[in-house]
Nucleic acid binder design. Structure first.
Length: 683
DNA sequence: ATGGACACTTAGCAGAGATGGA
DNA sequence: TCCATCTCTGCTAAGTGTCCAT
């Protein structure tokens, strides 16, 4: 079967590729550039997964949101039998029944017993305790709603709008073509957006300037429009200096002033930062509406510089329950709409003007609604673990298929699995930066080398992925994959799709047939979590002290970040900070030498020596960690890909305080995992 | 199939706030 | 105590994936 070309595809991309990415820094970042050494015996758990206990898990495996039986009317009961032994199921029901009872008792006690208990202690204390109890709500021990229903009661105060524009003082002038010009308030506001960005490189970019100028002119009066015809003749320097002075002044503010601002923020948070969802007060993630400004996408974005308009109450859709107190719009304004849709999780939405997409106000990751979903995500990944071998065998078979479509699907899936590539939905051209994922890879993004660096069948990837982060990697592949790639590339232009018979919806449909709930992104979650678990096993040395163990943890985390290509710009002061640390190490070494010398004289100084030795070790570990982490971002995988129960179990097993691994916010997000995972948890 | 609307997760970065050493 | 540095948080862009109409 011959590869078919998409109509006109060879023309399609030419233009936009010409001036692609002058984004130096991002270009320079590449997978290979972080010369980090990790133990890497396997690609990513691709070969044999670690041995696991054969007995059923006790830790929620079978009682996950998705898996849990009773109250949920699940669509495909029979399917579960494949991966869930009957025995377990009954056990599960028993367990959950028991749990339910406990809950009920618990609830009763909350209402009655707790009151009684606290009655003698006075009002203040009572309130405080109640609050604490609320915070400790274990939603993961409660029954869940039937699929589709997200809540029964929802009440909130609506969004906080961006502060109104404050005109510039009279003495801050704008010049056009050398002459002072007083701008109308609207034009002035948009001008200040540009002035604030003057130091940024992108105000020098053609597209940015063009887009900005076009949108700015829309805000001008007709006189302004006829005068201001050339952006290069605009002089924003006074404005720019004024804002710099302002931010300087903000830094110099007295303690009292700062305190006042802090209190005001806290008040705002207290009033608008929470909602009531089904009897519980939950934190809202982003209750503030995005302020107007100039859009700066990431990478080489065709819309950079466009005006992001001010959102008004008239743009806002409020979602809450019928029986709740609907938040009032600001005086003199109306909401666009108030609806009562409990099939969705958002409280507020509006349409943004750059891409025309919808933005939402939703709950914090610590909330029940987000947590359940997160938990469920990891359970799906764990189900994949059980059938991944079968799936791998299947796609290897499919490499030989007679159908081109099947072969492409199989090779793409191999990449997604082996390299943790993203799915790669198609994107509307000209609307966004030119980035790709697996299914949208083009011929120009890979290079085939029958032999490279002494290895056979090498594929060299070089493309911009999400956020225009460069993915650069050279990987040996199996001969069959290599031959298939050659076939897919035959008679194609560089701009043509590599997988021209494939897209994400075809792929996901296929995955759905292999396992319920399986989509391309599940492979990323699965491979990330399994890699962490494996690396932790390999890297943790039982006799190490805590800092050394944490270094091991970070290395395991780093292995995942590298797999997922989570990069960051090396911190601006990286070299310096590294040097400082080295200086400290040297000083500590001197100190140690001194102390040792003294030790000879005063043996009782032993303690001091030990302490210093420990400090030195800590510093050296810190240096290693920092060096290895130069351009790796650990946060993303920690927050989104790694089953938190793996980390919690590791902490419990080795006596590491969980605070060393997760900060406060993270502990809130992963409260469910911290509560339920034991030291023997297996992903 | 294709495309658009929609909902929700994942992502890096800037600036605020916390920390710790001189 | 001050300042430099490090860590965390907020922000919002940019993905994924589903559903529905055509």
């Amino acid at each position: 079967e011959k590869t078919k070309h998409k109509d006109g595809s060879s023309e399609k991309h030419k233009d936009k590729h010409k001036d692609r990415d002058k984004e130096k820094r991002k270009e320079e970042k590449s997978k290979s550039s972080g010369d980090v050494k990790i133990k890497k015996e396997k690609e990513n758990g691709f070969s044999s997964p670690p041995r696991i206990k054969d007995e059923p898990d006790e830790d929620g495996y079978y009682t996950s949101p998705k898996e849990d039986s009773k109250p949920l009317k699940r669509p495909r009961e029979e399917d579960d039998e494949d991966y869930k032994p009957k025995k377990i199921k009954t056990e599960d029901i028993k367990k959950s029944k028991k749990r339910k009872q406990e809950e009920e008792e618990d609830n009763k006690s909350k209402k009655t017993k707790s009151k009684d208990k606290r009655a003698p202690e006075g009002d203040n204390k009572k309130k405080k305790q109640k609050k604490e109890e609320e915070q400790k709500w274990k939603w993961w021990e409660e029954e869940r709603y039937p699929e589709g229903i997200k809540w029964k009661f929802l009440e909130h105060k609506g969004p906080v709008f961006a502060p109104p524009y404050e005109p510039l003082p009279e003495n801050v002038k704008f010049y056009y073509d050398g002459k002072v010009m007083k701008l109308s308030p609207k034009a002035e506001e948009v001008a200040t957006f540009f002035a604030k960005m003057l130091d940024h490189e992108y105000t020098t970019k053609d597209i940015f300037r063009k887009n900005f100028f076009k949108d700015w002119r829309k805000e001008m009066t007709s006189e302004e429009k006829s005068t201001i015809t050339n952006l290069s003749k605009c002089d924003f320097t006074q404005m720019s200096q004024y804002f710099k002075a302002q931010s300087e002044a903000r830094k110099q503010m007295s303690k009292e002033e700062k305190q006042k601002i802090k209190e005001e923020n806290e008040r705002l948070l207290k009033e608008y930062g929470f909602c009531i969802m089904d009897n519980h007060k939950e934190r809202i993630a982003n209750f503030k509406i995005e302020p107007p400004g100039l859009f700066r996408g990431r990478g080489n974005h065709p819309k950079m510089g466009m005006l992001k308009r001010r959102i008004m109450p008239e743009d806002i859709i409020i979602n809450c329950s019928k029986d709740s107190k609907v938040p009032p719009p600001p005086p003199g304004h109306k909401w666009k709409e108030v609806r009562h849709d409990n099939k969705v999780t958002w409280l507020v939405s509006w349409t943004e003007n750059i891409q025309g997409s919808i933005k939402y106000i939703m709950l914090n990751p610590s909330s029940r609604i987000k947590g359940e979903k997160d938990w469920q995500k990891y359970e799906t990944a764990r189900r994949l673990k059980k059938c991944v071998d079968k799936i791998r065998n299947q796609y290897r078979e499919d490499w030989k298929s007679k159908e081109m479509k099947v072969r492409q699907r199989a090779v793409a899936l191999y990449f997604i699995d082996k390299l943790a590539l993203r799915a790669g939905n198609e994107k509307e051209e000209g609307e966004t930066a030119d980035t790709v994922g697996c299914c949208s890879l083009r011929v120009e993004h890979i290079n085939l080398h029958p032999e490279l660096d002494g290895q056979e069948y090498m594929v060299e990837f070089d493309f911009l992925g999400k956020d225009s982060i460069r993915y650069y990697n050279k990987v040996p592949v199996e001969k069959r994959v290599f031959k298939n790639l050659q076939l897919f590339m035959e008679n194609k232009q560089p701009e043509d799709d590599l997988f021209d018979r494939l897209n994400t919806s075809i792929l996901n449909k296929h995955l759905q047939d292999l396992m319920e709930g399986l989509t391309a992104k599940v492979f990323r979650t699965y491979n990330a979590s399994i890699t962490l678990q494996q690396q932790l096993k390999e890297l943790t040395t039982p006799d190490d002290n805590i800092p050394a163990k944490i270094l091991s943890y970070n290395r395991a985390n780093r292995a995942v970040a590298i797999l997922c290509n989570h990069q960051r710009a090396p911190p601006k002061t990286f070299e310096k900070s590294m040097m400082n640390l080295q200086t400290k190490i040297d000083a500590k070494k001197d100190q140690l030498a001194d102390a040792r010398r003294e030790l000879k004289i005063w043996l009782h100084k032993k303690k001091a020596v030990q302490r210093i030795e420990e400090q030195l070790m800590k510093l050296e570990v810190q240096a290693t960690d920092r060096e290895e982490n130069k351009q790796i971002a650990l946060g993303t995988s920690k927050l989104n890909y790694l089953d938190p129960r793996i980390s919690v179990a590791w902490c419990k097993k080795w006596g590491i305080p969980v605070e060393k691994i997760y900060n406060k916010t993270q502990r809130e997000k992963f409260a469910w995992a911290i509560d339920m995972a034991e030291d023997d948890y297996e992903f």
